[in-house]
Amino acid sequence: MTVLAAGEVSPGLLGFLVVAFLGLALYILIKSMNKQMSKIQVPREGEEADEAKTDEKAKK
């Protein structure tokens, strides 16, 4: 173990654990976000116009 001189500061084990935890949490959140984003269905331009026409016909 290294002895530090007066006034020197080291993050130590606690600093490493905090950074490792934040990295792991970020990884899990990004993975979850990608899963949720893949579930979203975005209509294309042509499909949007077709749906509007279909809705108008259904109302009549």
Score class of each variant (00 low, 15 high):
residue 33 M to P: 00
residue 7 G to I: 10
residue 20 A to G: 07
residue 3 V to G: 12
residue 29 L to I: 03
residue 18 V to N: 05
residue 32 S to T: 02
residue 33 M to Y: 01
residue 9 V to C: 03
residue 53 K to M: 11
residue 57 K to W: 11
residue 16 F to L: 15
residue 21 F to E: 04
residue 45 E to M: 08
residue 38 S to K: 04
residue 56 E to Y: 03
residue 39 K to W: 00
residue 8 E to K: 13
residue 40 I to Q: 01
residue 36 Q to S: 01
residue 20 A to I: 08
residue 10 S to N: 09
residue 51 E to G: 01
residue 43 P to Y: 03
residue 35 K to Y: 10
residue 2 T to F: 13
residue 33 M to W: 02
residue 15 G to M: 13
residue 17 L to V: 05
residue 14 L to E: 05
residue 29 L to Y: 11
residue 30 I to N: 10
residue 30 I to G: 10
residue 22 L to H: 02
residue 42 V to A: 00
residue 47 E to G: 06
residue 18 V to T: 15
residue 5 A to R: 15
residue 15 G to V: 14
residue 34 N to K: 05
residue 25 A to N: 04
residue 22 L to D: 00
residue 19 V to A: 15
residue 49 A to G: 03
residue 14 L to S: 06
residue 55 D to W: 13
residue 35 K to N: 01
residue 59 K to G: 01
residue 2 T to I: 07
residue 53 K to R: 14
residue 56 E to C: 04
residue 1 M to R: 08
residue 26 L to V: 08
residue 21 F to D: 01
residue 44 R to M: 00
residue 48 E to Q: 06
residue 16 F to W: 13
residue 35 K to A: 05
residue 30 I to A: 11
residue 6 A to P: 13
residue 37 M to D: 02
residue 20 A to F: 15
residue 15 G to D: 05
residue 26 L to K: 04
residue 25 A to F: 03
residue 19 V to L: 15
residue 46 G to V: 11
residue 39 K to G: 06
residue 54 T to Q: 14
residue 13 L to S: 13
residue 33 M to A: 09
residue 38 S to W: 01
residue 48 E to K: 11
residue 42 V to G: 00
residue 42 V to D: 00
residue 27 Y to M: 09
residue 20 A to Y: 14
